[in-house]
């Protein structure tokens, strides 16, 4: 912080004192407003779910029935769908994104580096609804006619690749996971790129002087030095995948049931809320949607704090706790 004179001369103008007060008041209101906002969001979401909570309790989380006709609601299938799609997305996205970041910091010639870096950033800027549209009309048919039969013919002996590929027009868990991968990659890549660029050149030069190949420098120095940061980056990508509602609801098929194959349809927490925006039949159903939002809110908080905790610990280790 800057140097502030602590004692003002006695003749200070009244207007200046008022001005300082007003400035402090306005900025504090904005800053504390943000704090109040997040508390308000949490309150409203939990408050909205109270009806469903009083009816189902924590059993809601482990109940797999979602039946508006019988007024019976549970989140297990949706939690499962969220977990599976996000997990697959991260499984694809983390190595891809780290590869991209390595290419951009270690391999690419200068001209390509700026161009490809900008293109990867553009990928992050594509609105999710457009990716979803592409998912329905281009990726879906491709999955149905090409990729899924191909996977089935090679890996069909695995139960997860054994489902019916023609049942739902290419919509399903795997298609949703691929769309989520496309969303998570640029997020992880941009953080990873910054991390890699921050590795001191001395360390890399040292490894090179010992005769290490480029990959050995990366594995031994770059990846080693940035491991915790990378973990945080991947968690951030996971947060994005967990909370995506629109694109997933467009391509996942929106069916509540735990499918035994990745070609099958499913649903996620966020996607279920989005899908029922204009059609909830009862207060209990509306409240159950709030309950889903509350679970999602808790997930996103855990993810957020998890990433921060990792970064903190990393900084603590690096600076010896100073």
């Amino acid at each position: 912080m800057s140097v502030v004179p602590t004692e003002f001369p006695a003749g200070r103008r009244f207007g200046d004192r008022i001005g300082d007060r007003v400035l402090y008041g306005l900025t504090a209101a904005a800053g504390l407003g943000a704090v109040a906002l997040i508390i308000g969001i949490a309150y409203k979401v939990f408050d909205g779910s109270s009806l469903a909570f009083s009816k189902f309790g924590f059993g809601f989380i482990v109940d797999e029935v979602w039946n508006p006709v019988k007024n019976q609601f549970g989140a297990l299938d949706l939690i499962w769908g969220t977990a599976v799609t996000s997990f697959i997305a991260i499984l694809f996205a983390a190595p891809l994104a780290i590869g991209i970041a390595l290419y951009l910091t270690e391999l690419a010639p200068r001209v390509l580096r700026d161009a490809i870096g900008a293109l990867v950033e553009m990928l992050a800027a594509i609105p999710s609804v457009i990716l979803g549209l592409w998912g329905i009309l281009v990726l879906g048919p491709f999955m149905q006619h090409d990729l899924e039969p191909f996977l089935k013919s090679f890996l069909g002996w695995l139960p997860i690749f054994s489902g019916d590929t023609n049942a739902n027009g290419g919509k399903g868990i795997l298609t949703a996971s691929i769309i989520l991968t496309i969303m998570a990659v640029p997020i992880i890549a941009s953080v990873a790129r910054e991390l890699f660029a921050s590795v001191p050149a001395d360390l890399k030069d040292g490894a090179r002087a010992l005769g290490a190949t480029r990959w050995e420098v990366v594995r031994g120095v770059v990846l080693h030095a940035t491991r915790p940061g990378l973990a945080a980056a991947v968690i951030l990508g996971l947060g994005r995948a967990l909370g995506e509602a629109i694109a997933v609801t467009q391509v996942i098929g929106s069916v509540t049931q735990i499918p035994n194959s990745l070609f099958g349809t499913g649903d996620t927490l966020a996607s279920r809320i989005a899908a029922q925006y204009q059609g909830y039949g009862s207060n209990l159903q509306a409240s159950s949607l709030f309950y889903l939002a509350a679970i999602l809110l808790v997930f996103s908080l855990v993810v957020n704090f998890g990433a921060q905790l990792i970064v903190r610990r990393f900084e603590f280790q690096n600076t010896g706790g100073s």
């Binding site: 997040i38 909370g243 995506e244 939002a293 996103s300 908080l301 957020n304």
Partner: peptide, 19 residues
């Protein structure tokens, strides 16, 4: 607080304004 708002799923933001 700003970080948490930034990480919030946008559907949750929507349902907050709804209520």
């Amino acid at each position: 607080a700003l970080d948490v708002i930034n990480g919030l799923p946008t559907i949750v933001t929507g349902i907050f304004v709804f209520s």
